[in-house]
Design a protein around this nucleic acid. Structure first.
Lengths: 228, 228
DNA sequence: CGCGGAATTGACTATCATCAAAGTTTGTGG
DNA sequence: CCACAAACTTTGATGATAGTCAATTCCGCG
């Protein structure tokens, strides 16, 4: 399949090493971004589509008065860069060391067959956005946070530390978001995120640390139940 | 263009008359739905794409405990029915007398060129979902309601009652949502919607009535400013 | 005219935001 | 390897916005 294929040019930026970088992409160019670097900004002229090769990207919207909302978190394989009137409504930021494949939209659109691939991708993203709307509109802080943890557990969690007794296995995962960013994604203040995480820890549902960003899910079914 | 074309079969349901019904669509079938009738339900097997020909459709998600969130409001021209794992995550409901064109996905996908049309549509819907995420995550009740009013003003508002003095023209519009539905879309209780609408009325920014669902925007710039 | 759903308004409550003050990690440079 | 600064996290006290419960009024339709 032309869209998911082949070799490409590579440029490194920030502190990424080349071996962290490109898988491959036919019609595009791979670029590496360091933590918190912008890939494009609100208002920039559009014209490219982007795919996350590795790492994680957040799309954020800023209001004039400084209010901030992360509207999407993208992981490996996800497409982004859809624009409506030729310019981006959102800023895309690498959440960690990240490699992105950049493809010129006009090149892509010359290949009809790719259209449906993109449509399926965007369909999935719409569904995810709708889930998030349910969370922000109707769920409380604990439910929102459990839902976010599950998202990372599904997409990047590993299950190494199996219990000998056959009990539920802890899931260790690394959340590449600060408390403030979690709040900006979940529509909460960073303090509420902290307090809610602490409460889940007290309940024995999760463990925090040892490093910043590390979370261990101790009771997956409890997290599921609380995510609603 | 094959996708936006041609003649089709028509079925009428509820109280819709035939002349309210179909424009045309090549690969699909037009159906008419009465107020509050479901087009498909959460959990139904997917396999079709739908386009609003006239009227308005809401997509809703229900939680087991009864909490409800309207995640999208679709007007004429909008596509819906994207599913991830072969079944719908959402229920689609006609907000008023509505005609929908139903197209089999496998038929559509035989035409490569249509893929990009769908992709552009879904791209627009993603942007709209992201705006709504900003609203639910970071905006207060007044801002959310002003944003919703602007959405209807842009898409269906007419500007008939021009001021003789050349002042700002009132915009009369009909919102096909009850207060409760507005709340379910905006992540608010129906009482908060009521109170906020009343406050905007007291401020002289809008007028309400004479019928249920009627709203007149008296000061468009004020609504814009408050929408953020 | 009268019934039922929708809208409005009031009183009280709860969740979450804000302000503030420590305490931890992380990364850098000597 | 240690020290220090900056960024991030945690916890507490207080307040504001919006939710819930309830009573009344209004509109739409038979």
């Amino acid at each position: 399949m032309a869209f998911y294929g082949n070799q490409a040019e590579v440029r490194t930026e920030a502190k990424l090493r080349v071996q962290d970088a490109p898988r491959e992409c036919h019609v595009g160019v791979c670029r590496a971004y360091g933590k918190r670097h912008a890939i494009f900004r609100q208002g920039d002229k559009a014209g490219h589509l982007y795919r996350v090769e590795s790492g994680a990207v957040a799309l954020e919207i800023l209001l004039e008065d400084g209010r901030r909302q992360l509207v999407e978190i993208l992981l490996a394989g996800d497409l982004f860069g859809f624009a409506v009137d030729g310019s981006f409504e959102e800023t895309a930021i690498a959440l960690e060391a990240t490699v992105v494949c950049v493809m010129r939209q006009c090149d892509l659109e010359r290949t009809d067959a790719v259209g449906w691939e993109v449509a399926h991708q965007t369909g999935r993203q719409i569904t995810r956005a709708h889930d998030q709307l349910m969370a922000l509109g109707r769920k409380n802080a604990q439910e929102r946070i459990c839902q976010l943890l599950l998202r990372f557990a599904r997409d990047i969690g590993d299950r190494p530390c199996a219990e000998p007794g056959g009990g539920p296995e802890p899931i260790r995962l690394h959340v590449p978001l600060t408390r403030g960013e979690m709040g900006d994604y979940l529509g909460l203040s960073l303090e509420t995120v902290c307090r809610t995480m602490s409460a889940l820890k007290q309940l024995g549902v999760i463990a925090i640390g040892p490093r910043q960003g590390d979370v261990t899910i101790l009771a997956l079914d409890e997290v599921r139940r609380r995510a609603g």
